[in-house]
Lab assay of single mutants.
Amino acid sequence: KYSDMIVAAIQAEKNRAGSSRQSIQKYIKSHYKVGENADSQIKLSIKRLVTTGVLKQTKGVGASGSFRLA
């Protein structure tokens, strides 16, 4: 599940300011076997996790910027 992968990526990075979408994508692609549409799936999952309150956006708008666990 992409949401689990995103949470794992943010936990692994341990950046106080949060993790960027690009760094999350890079982590997921190197640690998991994902399909061609992974980028758009990650983007959608990040937006969903922010609206449900699992992630907090520290910089930027939408799916860009930095995110950390709430």
Rank of each mutant, 00 (worst) to 15 (best):
K1L: 15
K1M: 11
K1N: 12
K1W: 10
K1T: 11
Y2W: 15
S3I: 11
S3R: 10
S3Y: 13
S3V: 12
S3D: 15
D4N: 07
D4V: 11
M5S: 00
M5Y: 07
I6W: 01
I6Y: 00
I6D: 00
I6E: 00
V7D: 00
V7K: 05
V7R: 05
V7P: 01
A8H: 07
A8Y: 05
I10S: 04
I10E: 01
I10D: 00
I10G: 00
I10V: 13
I10C: 05
Q11A: 11
Q11D: 04
Q11W: 07
Q11P: 00
Q11G: 06
Q11Y: 08
A12R: 04
A12G: 04
A12L: 03
A12K: 04
A12Q: 06
A12W: 07
A12V: 05
E13H: 08
E13C: 13
E13T: 09
K14E: 08
K14R: 10
K14T: 07
K14I: 05
K14C: 15
K14N: 14
N15V: 05
N15W: 05
N15S: 10
N15D: 06
N15F: 05
R16Q: 12
R16S: 13
R16A: 13
R16E: 12
R16Y: 10
A17C: 15
A17T: 09
A17M: 13
A17H: 13
G18D: 04
G18W: 04
G18R: 02
S19W: 04
S19A: 10
S19T: 08
S19F: 03
S20G: 03
S20L: 03
R21F: 15
R21K: 07
R21T: 14
R21G: 09
Q22C: 14
Q22D: 10
Q22F: 07
Q22E: 14
Q22N: 09
S23G: 05
S23M: 07
S23V: 05
I24M: 01
I24Y: 00
I24W: 02
I24S: 00
I24P: 01
Q25G: 09
Q25E: 13
Q25N: 09
Q25C: 15
Q25I: 15
Q25D: 06
Q25F: 08
K26T: 08
K26W: 15
K26L: 11
K26C: 09
Y27D: 01
Y27L: 00
Y27T: 00
I28M: 02
I28T: 00
I28G: 00
I28E: 15
I28L: 04
I28W: 15
I28D: 00
I28Q: 00
I28R: 00
K29C: 07
K29A: 06
K29L: 10
S30K: 10
H31P: 00
H31V: 05
H31C: 08
H31Q: 04
Y32H: 02
Y32F: 13
Y32N: 02
Y32L: 03
Y32D: 00
Y32R: 02
Y32A: 02
K33T: 10
K33Y: 07
K33I: 11
K33E: 12
K33C: 11
V34P: 03
V34L: 06
V34E: 03
V34A: 04
V34C: 06
V34Y: 03
G35N: 06
G35C: 15
N37L: 06
N37M: 06
N37D: 14
D39W: 09
D39S: 07
D39R: 06
D39K: 07
D39P: 05
S40V: 13
S40G: 06
Q41N: 06
Q41R: 11
I42M: 02
I42N: 01
I42A: 00
I42V: 05
K43N: 15
K43E: 15
K43I: 14
K43T: 13
K43P: 03
L44I: 12
L44P: 01
L44H: 08
L44G: 06
S45T: 15
I46F: 03
I46N: 00
I46R: 01
I46L: 13
I46Q: 00
K47P: 02
K47A: 12
K47V: 10
R48E: 13
R48G: 06
R48I: 13
R48L: 13
R48H: 14
L49I: 00
L49F: 02
L49Q: 01
L49R: 01
V50S: 02
V50T: 04
V50K: 01
V50I: 08
V50W: 03
V50C: 15
T51V: 12
T51P: 00
T51L: 13
T51A: 14
T52G: 06
G53F: 03
G53V: 03
G53C: 05
G53E: 03
V54T: 04
V54I: 10
V54Q: 04
V54N: 03
L55I: 10
L55C: 02
L55W: 00
L55D: 01
L55F: 01
K56S: 08
T58H: 07
T58M: 12
T58S: 09
T58G: 07
T58I: 13
T58P: 04
K59M: 09
K59E: 07
K59W: 10
K59I: 08
K59H: 08
K59V: 08
K59Y: 09
K59N: 09
G60W: 06
G60E: 06
V61T: 10
V61M: 09
V61G: 12
G62F: 07
G62H: 06
G62K: 06
G62M: 05
G62I: 05
G62D: 09
A63H: 11
S64V: 08
S64L: 13
S64I: 10
S64N: 14
S64G: 14
S64Q: 12
G65S: 13
G65L: 14
G65V: 15
G65I: 15
S66V: 12
S66T: 12
S66P: 08
S66Y: 14
F67T: 03
F67N: 03
R68G: 07
R68C: 13
R68M: 14
R68E: 10
L69F: 05
L69H: 04
L69G: 03
L69W: 04
A70K: 05
A70G: 05
A70E: 04
